[in-house]
Write a protein that binds this DNA or RNA. Structure first.
Length: 419
RNA sequence: GGAGAGAUGGCUGAGCGGUUGAAAGCACCGGUCUUGAAAACCGGCAAAGGGGCAACUCUUUCCUGGGUUCGAAUCCCAGUCUCUCCGCCA
């Protein structure tokens, strides 16, 4: 969320940049509401001061007047609250402002490639898609999932289930043992306020699965990513400088409605309502966001290096970034069957945008209270890594070589074949 | 599910109708001492919001929301959460 003061001071600039974030609403209302809100606050404070001084005198003859002032204050407060609410509704739905090195453009074709890595393998046969491979092996079952649950779910079975688990464990171990992240096994549900903190609410409610509880005032949602729950660990806190940077990793299922992507990636397990993801979250001093983003992205790409999967790194343009992000790198992995790169990780710095929503702060070395910087990134999406391994490590007879680094996690088998 | 206890500043914890934004301790920041560090001693230190170029100043805030009162951290009501005991289940 933006500080209304920054917003006011840089109004024209905000207005211009927000167009490139595909935010088209009229922003002039914000200024009017802000002005009205501040006027009302001033009026109210004047009366409060008067009332306070009366009660200090303990002069009985003034008590009646004090009572009258109270009534006036009530009325003003109510009005002020209404205006403030209106203002907040708009403010809460305005996306973060991109950093200067982010390409200013509305459309994803303006994303910029930063680097390419790894070698694309030449198959001497036509490489199959992951779902063909998986179904032939009898280890991916989409029809069964449709029967029990519905579309966009999958049963992963047998050696592929083990492979999926191996991928997840390998990633977590790497991040905890080599990259300095602390492992967390968090709740998979979050409250409305938690979802607000990272920016999933109020704007993207349609993408979330809500869980029915008995108490209607206490809404709960399945997490669409562990980012939500990990980042909110520091909600409503003032952290000690010594506890920063805080680096957290979790492997969790993620749940997404994928509203608005009907007809997209309907085949296979690229786009599911439920998938595993290893998520990295960093809480840092707010002037260290940029270096932390580089570090985090490197932690993610290192996994692909270790798995020997070809990938490229791109920087997203302003229009393609998520709501809370100020700068985002996407990492795309090569899929032989599609003959193109597909997203497997997204690493973002959110600056202080989420911290302001969460009221997450720290004492800097001058003992001043400041908002923390928050970052999140996939390290990596487990389901999509499984896809990439299946496709890049397939052989002509339909079996799949197990990548070397994963073998210790799979009882040292080196190949998955039809048995 | 039944019976109690509690929720106060970054943390621990006093206060239970009137300069209490809140004692004390810890943590943190600055200083003295020390070759350096530690210890000791001295000083500082809540947050949010409003006004002001600034120095500064005002308002709000002691779980949340209502109520009583001229005045509430303190009294009343409702809710949320936490802890202890009993029952039940993993």
């Amino acid at each position: 969320m933006h500080n209304i003061k920054d917003f006011r001071d840089n109004f024209e600039n905000f207005k211009k940049i927000l167009k490139f974030r595909n935010y088209e609403n009229n922003l002039d209302d914000v200024l009017h509401l802000d002005k009205e809100n501040r006027n009302l606050i001033q009026e109210k404070e004047k009366l409060e001061m008067e009332k306070k001084s009366i009660s200090k005198t303990k002069d009985q003859s003034l008590f009646v007047k004090s009572k009258e002032i109270s009534l006036k204050i009530d009325k003003l407060s109510k009005k002020q609250k209404e205006i403030k609410d209106k203002l907040d509704i708009i403010l809460k739905a305005i996306p973060n402002i991109p950093l200067k090195d982010v390409p200013l453009a509305k459309d994803e074709i303006n994303n910029k490639e930063i680097s390419k890595s790894g070698e694309i393998k030449n198959f001497n046969f036509e490489p199959k898609s992951h779902y063909e491979i998986g179904e032939k092996l009898n280890m991916l079952d989409f029809d069964l999932a449709t029967k029990t649950t519905g579309s966009r779910f999958v049963f992963v079975k047998d050696k592929l289930a083990a492979l999926e688990r191996a991928i997840s464990n390998f990633m977590i171990d790497t991040h905890t043992q080599k990259n300095g992240y602390k492992e967390i096994s968090p709740p998979l549900m979050a409250t409305e306020n938690t979802m607000f903190g990272t920016g999933q609410l109020p704007k993207f409610e349609d993408d979330q699965f809500e869980i029915k509880f008995d108490d209607k005032n206490d809404r709960k949602f399945l997490i669409p990513t562990a980012e939500v729950i990990l980042t909110n660990m520091v909600k409503n806190q003032i952290l000690n400088l010594k506890s920063l940077p805080l680096r957290l990793v979790a492997s969790t299922p993620c749940f997404r409605k994928e509203a608005g992507s009907y007809g997209k990636d309907t085949k296979g397990m690229i786009r599911q309502h439920q998938f595993y993801k290893v998520e990295l979250v960093s809480i840092v001093e707010n002037n260290k966001c940029n270096e932390e983003l580089e570090r985090m992205t490197n932690c993610a790409t290192k996994i692909l290096d270790d798995l020997n999967l070809p990938y490229k790194k791109i920087i997203l343009c302003s229009g393609d970034m998520g709501f809370s992000a100020e700068k985002t790198y996407d990492i795309e992995v090569w899929l032989p069957s599609e003959k193109k790169y597909r997203e497997i990780s997204s690493c973002s710095s959110c600056g202080t945008f989420q911290a302001k929503r969460m009221m997450a702060r720290y004492k800097n070395n001058e003992n001043k209270t400041e908002y923390v910087g928050t970052l999140n990134g996939s390290g990596l999406a487990v389901g999509r890594t499984l896809i990439a391994v299946l496709e890049n490590y397939q052989t002509e007879d339909g079996s799949v070589i197990v990548p070397e680094v994963l073998r210790p996690y799979m009882g040292n088998i080196d190949k998955i074949s039809l048995n």
